[in-house]
Nucleic acid binder design. Structure first.
Length: 290
DNA sequence: CATATGTCCTGAGAGC
DNA sequence: TGCTCTCAGGACATAT
């Protein structure tokens, strides 16, 4: 489940194709339900053929491939949303059956760029600069979790009555945090996932902000988390390593590595698994459930 | 307006 | 062995 560290790893893995030209747009035949590709393939082809890959970016959990301006064109972008199981690859994919979209490239070290998606919830979208601003502007996707200031993070959420773990998943509030890293961040911050945003103190917001940076940056260093299903891979189809450094995620009933005196617990929050340490993340007395 | 829930999808694993 | 069931959680649509 690619979140910010995994998508950032994908983005960095694409750097070899900077400067390459698009020679062909490929939609492999696939027995499964086709993913969303927009606009229709004929239009897509017409607009991207021969264009150069000028810049690689990321908006939250999306990879952005910006195409160079060539005379009459604006810098259009190919925006790839991996969602649950999508991968962006320069190397051979895990299998051919789930290949969804590809670019044949020339003038660089890699001859193909693939989008592979086992569950098919992901999408590939070509957008103009104007459309990009509308679809991925600050009112649709919040500030990046690695760029947001402590003050802005707090001010965007402090009035909310939502539980902090749920709020951290809101991409309009802050972009890039998903279910796995939300649990990891709150554990490092020492904040219980059920605490309500509007009851957190300034010191706790600072702790959450610090933990966000620390967890996400370390996870990027380890090239993201490849969970038990093995789905996530970097652009060269190699597994990440951060799963070996998780403090709470997927560690229910195991001892806490920090306090050693408590056992990690799992519960369901907004239909998602939440993991936390009851010793390190106390639920304040005023927060006790009815 | 803010917040909560339902939906899409496939493959893995459990239980019989 | 093969069927049915449940679960996983990204973003978005719809409901409260």
């Amino acid at each position: 489940m690619p979140e910010l560290p995994e998508v950032e790893t994908m983005r960095r893995g694409l750097t070899p194709v900077l400067g390459s030209r698009v020679a062909e747009v490929i939609r492999p035949r696939c027995k499964l339900r086709p993913i969303e590709i927009a606009p229709r393939l004929s239009t897509f082809r017409r607009l991207v053929m021969g264009r150069t890959i000028a810049k690689l970016d990321r908006v939250g959990k999306r990879v952005v491939i910006e195409l160079g301006v060539n005379g009459k064109h604006q810098p259009d972008s190919i925006v790839i949303e991996p969602r649950m199981t999508g991968l962006v690859l320069l190397a051979e994919p895990p299998d051919r059956a789930h290949l969804r979209f590809g670019l044949r490239l020339e003038g660089g070290p890699a001859s193909e760029l693939w989008f592979w998606d086992r569950r098919g919830l992901g999408s590939v979208r070509l957008v103009s600069a104007a459309e990009f601003a509308v679809r991925y502007g600050l009112d649709r996707v919040g500030p990046d979790a690695l760029r947001i200031s402590a003050h802005e993070l707090a001010s965007r959420l402090a009035a909310s009555r939502r539980e902090i773990k749920v709020a951290l998943l809101d991409q309009r509030a802050v972009a890039g945090i998903g279910n796995l890293y939300a649990s990891e961040i709150l554990h490092l911050a020492g904040v219980h996932p059920r605490r309500r945003c509007n009851q957190l103190r300034a010191a706790e917001w600072r702790a959450i902000h610090d933990a966000t940076r620390e967890v996400l940056e370390l996870a990027i260093c380890y090239e993201g988390s490849t969970l038990g299903d093995g789905t996530y891979r970097n652009a060269l189809n190699e597994a990440g390593n951060y799963q070996n450094h998780h403090r709470v995620y997927d560690r229910a009933r195991q001892p806490c590595t920090r306090c050693a005196s408590s056992v990690i617990e799992r519960f369901v929050q907004a239909q998602r698994s939440t993991f936390y340490c009851p010793g390190c993340q106390p639920l304040g007395r005023r927060q006790v459930e009815k």
